[in-house]
């Protein structure tokens, strides 16, 4: 950090040293500081979304909890583990790059990329599921099923474009999935109904926040549930879910691009104990993307789980 020294000696230009620097140390310091400042920028970038999340969740906690319960926490958790493993392989890549061990580098980068792809695969599966159940917050982007559509034989994953009603979809007794225009649909009002009833019975209780009492009711203060109003709030949850995870996935895709380049460089034995900062920088990026997910997982997938004991 202090002013660097120029040597009067003959300057030996190391390979990989750019002309504006005096030595590799200065170059590494600059590049790593640059990367960290870029990550600071990324923190604020995602931070804007976290602010939106914070405000909206504080306004509509129950809608968020309901929406969250509809995400597959098991898949979310599995994805968390996948990313953690990929972070480990990434950290080890840096370790072996420092040692100049080409084969381990190449192998670990391939592994890291495979885990990254696994993550994206699981994510895609989840998105498809939301598409099938009418949970994509944008009208027209959900599976379209006409009211008189035939009931399909099979049970399990419904592929995009399929318009039949799958037998496995609805809870027993619930209405089948019908969505002629592919709109956002919400059909689970048990939790909010339960809380609304309790609130009505005990006006001084804290089942709903004051803001919720006003905004979920047919008219302010009536404490009679207006399903459409509640649905709009759940849709906000899914909107935030899609924007946050989508932007995160985009970062993953960019990360995979960087890793491809890194793989090529490692394959050519570019890195050794003296020169490995590209590996280290890519690692910083990869770990950062992992950290974002470490927060997204509990904040999106887990926040309403504890209501499950109500058995609704």
């Amino acid at each position: 950090m202090s002013a660097h020294s120029h040597s009067d000696k003959f300057v030996y230009h190391e390979p990989g040293l750019q002309h504006q620097f005096d030595d590799m140390g200065q170059q590494e310091e600059s590049v790593s500081l640059g990367m960290w400042l870029f990550l600071a920028q990324e923190i604020m970038f995602f931070g804007g979304l976290f602010t939106a999340y914070l405000v909206m969740r504080s306004k509509y906690p129950l809608a968020f909890a309901s929406g969250s319960n509809h995400l597959d926490a098991f898949l979310g958790g599995a994805n968390t583990l996948v990313l953690i493993v990929s972070s480990l392989t990434m950290a080890l890549t840096v370790y072996y790059a420092q040692k100049g061990n080409r084969n381990m580098q190449v192998g670990l980068i391939v592994l890291t990329m495979l885990f990254g792809l696994t993550f994206l695969g699981i994510k895609a599966y989840e998105y498809t599921d939301k598409y099938n159940h009418g949970l994509v917050p944008m009208a027209g982007l959900n599976r379209r099923v006409k009211a008189d559509a035939p009931v399909a034989e099979h049970v399990g994953l419904v592929l995009p474009g399929e318009t039949a009603v799958s037998a496995s979809e609805a809870k027993p007794g619930a209405e089948p999935y019908v969505n002629p225009h592919g709109e956002f649909q919400w059909r689970e009002y048990e939790l909010v109904q339960h809380m609304m009833d309790k609130q009505r019975a005990e006006p001084n209780g804290h089942y709903l926040t004051l803001n919720e009492q006003l905004t979920y009711s047919t008219s302010p203060g009536s404490l009679i549930l207006d399903k459409d109003k509640f649905r709009d709030k759940v849709r906000i949850f899914f909107y935030i879910y899609f924007v946050m995870t989508g932007l995160h996935a985009l970062h993953m895709i960019i990360g995979l691009g960087i890793m491809t380049w890194l793989l090529w460089m490692a394959y050519k034995s570019t890195f050794n104990a003296e020169y490995f900062s590209p590996v280290e920088m890519s690692g910083l990026y990869w770990h950062f993307v992992d950290i974002v997910w470490i927060f997204l997982f509990p904040l999106l997938y887990l926040l309403g789980r504890h209501y499950e004991h109500l058995g609704l």
Binding site: L37, A40, Q41, E42, M44, F45, F46, G47, G48, L49, A52, M56, P137, M138, A139, F184, D232, R235, I236, Y239, I240, V243
Partner: peptide, 25 residues
Amino acid sequence: FVLGTPVVAITLLLVAIERVAHVGI
């Protein structure tokens, strides 16, 4: 630049998405 600009970037992105998706935060 580093600590502020990303926030307006994401804000404008949200405006853009909201215009397309008609979901209102």
